[in-house]
Nucleic acid binder design. Structure first.
Lengths: 346, 346
DNA sequence: TTGAAAGCGCTAACAA
DNA sequence: TTGTTAGCGCTTTCAA
């Protein structure tokens, strides 16, 4: 591998100046009224030797990097992994690269990562933020950085965001239980102050409250050691044998829950009916298949990236921030039905 | 947000030169015999105003970026997502950021991405390569880029790599079937020329061949539309009713296979015994739980990153490339046992 | 229509 | 012991 060519090399070999080459390469030949003939000569030569400008030098000069920062809670979470995949694929086609990092829901790490984004001159950010980083995000936006939030938002941030209708999804799931005659409906979720979790909890509570029912909420502290979380759920069901239906507030909660229910030998839906947020192969293949509240992953990713691209190439400058709320889809399977009700009918 | 400070600002305000500041910041004060007092003054001021050097300018000057390029087949694959997560977390602690991209197993895209890595001056690459990029990878290495391959390797590449013992894992899985008396053992996998897939196939064939059994291999063409792959597997089982055991060659094949078997109403393991490569929540929660050949994810990620860090900070320069082959772990569950054999025993 | 030159922020060779 | 200065490769203003 020989040394990489620079624009100076090109200019020298062509006996023109660096600026001419630069103008041609940046499509400003016409504007600069460079002769068609010269343009051709430059383009031909550049293609011939396979020259590409250094994005680093360009970045230093222009402040642009053609990099999008993507910050999610954890890339190993299937939801975020799917989003990342789709976002990267679209961004790549538009010439953007992805600098990615996981926050691990750690506010301090997130702050440091925002600083990394800033100093690396990323052109825009996509962030699923932990709580308490509102002021940093706002500072970023004030400094002119395009920012799109997703999955959860920050109440005090003026950023664009893409979300699902968490509250009404939870509400509807609980209604589904109530309408079938379930009496002791639990909500098992992770303890979290993030808006999406708050929304789901509030949807649960308002559906329950409407009926004057008692709320049964279990908030698990997230723990990388899954077994300890399973144990928590296990103990909860052991102590609350009256629970006849449960809504899981997130895919990981659902998976832990299924593992706990399996350990306890409880039958779904005969002993406990189940609905879970998010969809996953586990839910499709479980016996019985688990009814799930599926997020429209493709659409979420699509909206995120178009929101960001819009900000990056401000056609008509929407200086106003956009809030997009998408609908979830109920994947009605077999885990949520009231067998006793069915039997009654027969 | 005010304009970011530059090293020149720091130098001015401190009435020293840029180089002095630079040396202090880069820990070369002692070597340059800068007075303790000055060092303190600089460090204090830098901390006070929160100055951090621009990595871009530094990168332009030094050719180093503190960025590691991570290229996987698809970040939405749970295996790669887990690896990415662990690698990022370790790299972050060492001050490296991750520039990530998916190859989608597209050789052309991969070539373009390698070029991106090169021009962005990433300090090192972690790649799960598609076939036919051996020469590009070799060129990268020749140009002095540290490269670690994983999951599959390139026969003609001189890169470090981390792999599992694909061949013997498949061999042992088939032996497990054979020893229990299964007679028509299939191998269902994706059609692929990647080394890991070739290894698994060859392990299957040699175990089968040893017994003089007939090989039953189904190679699915990977298709983002899962339903079409399920259909393929479904038809295969419909046409080959004598199959009494099956090894799935990858997690996605296993999931498709389970979906197909479920559709067909075939009982596991009574009608068909099952083992799958890779472990996944689906396998743990399926009824019955699926016996899996689990890859040691943490260890793979750990080896990858330490191999790379070793190359990045060549203590004793291993110019020789290192090949690391890790053992898989059989998660013996219930899907692989021969019920007829058990019955016979009882 | 094209070219010269400044400068983005940093490092490091060389001077003092 | 510290400062001066020349680039790294590019864009862009200004001059020709």
């Amino acid at each position: 591998m020989v040394k990489k060519l620079s624009i100076a090399d090109i200019a020298n070999q062509l006996n023109v100046s660096k600026s001419t080459v630069s103008f041609v390469l940046n499509g400003r030949a016409e504007e600069k009224r460079i002769s068609k003939e010269l343009v051709n000569r430059v383009e031909k030569f550049v293609k011939e030797v396979g020259y590409t400008p250094s994005p680093i030098a360009r970045g230093l000069r222009t402040g642009k990097s053609n990099i999008i920062g993507l910050m999610v809670e954890s890339i190993s979470d299937p939801f975020f992994a799917d989003i990342a995949k789709l976002v990267e694929s679209t961004a790549y086609k538009k010439g953007y690269r992805i600098l990615y990092c996981s926050t691990d829901n750690d506010t301090e790490k997130t702050r440091a990562l925002i600083e990394v984004f800033r100093e690396r001159n990323v052109d825009g950010c996509i962030i699923s933020p932990p709580v308490d980083v509102g002021s940093e995000i706002n500072a970023l936006i004030k400094a002119g950085m395009p920012v799109v939030l997703f999955d959860r938002n920050l109440p005090d941030a003026g950023a664009d965001y893409v979300e699902i209708n968490n509250e009404s999804s939870a509400f509807n799931a609980i209604r589904l239980f109530i309408d079938q005659g379930f009496k002791n409906i639990a909500f098992i979720t992770f303890s979290s102050l993030q808006t999406q979790m708050l929304g789901r909890l509030s949807g649960y509570k308002s559906a329950i409250g409407q009926e004057g029912m008692e709320a049964h909420v279990l908030e698990i502290d997230y723990n990388p050691d899954e077994d300890s979380m399973i144990k928590t759920v296990n103990e909860y069901f052991s102590k609350n044998k009256n629970i006849d239906a449960v809504l899981f507030g997130a895919v990981q909660a659902g998976i832990c829950g299924l593992k706990a229910l399996t350990q306890l030998g409880l039958k779904i839906p005969e002993d406990v009916a189940v609905i879970s947020f998010d969809d996953h192969d586990v839910f499709k293949l479980f016996a019985p298949p688990i009814t799930a509240i599926a997020q429209p992953i493709e659409e979420i990713a699509g909206r995120i990236i178009s929101l960001l691209l819009e900000r990056l190439n401000p056609g008509q400058s929407h200086s106003q921030s956009q809030k997009i709320v998408l609908n979830t889809e109920f994947k009605l399977r077999r885990s949520h039905v009231n067998k006793h009700l069915l039997l009654g009918k027969v």
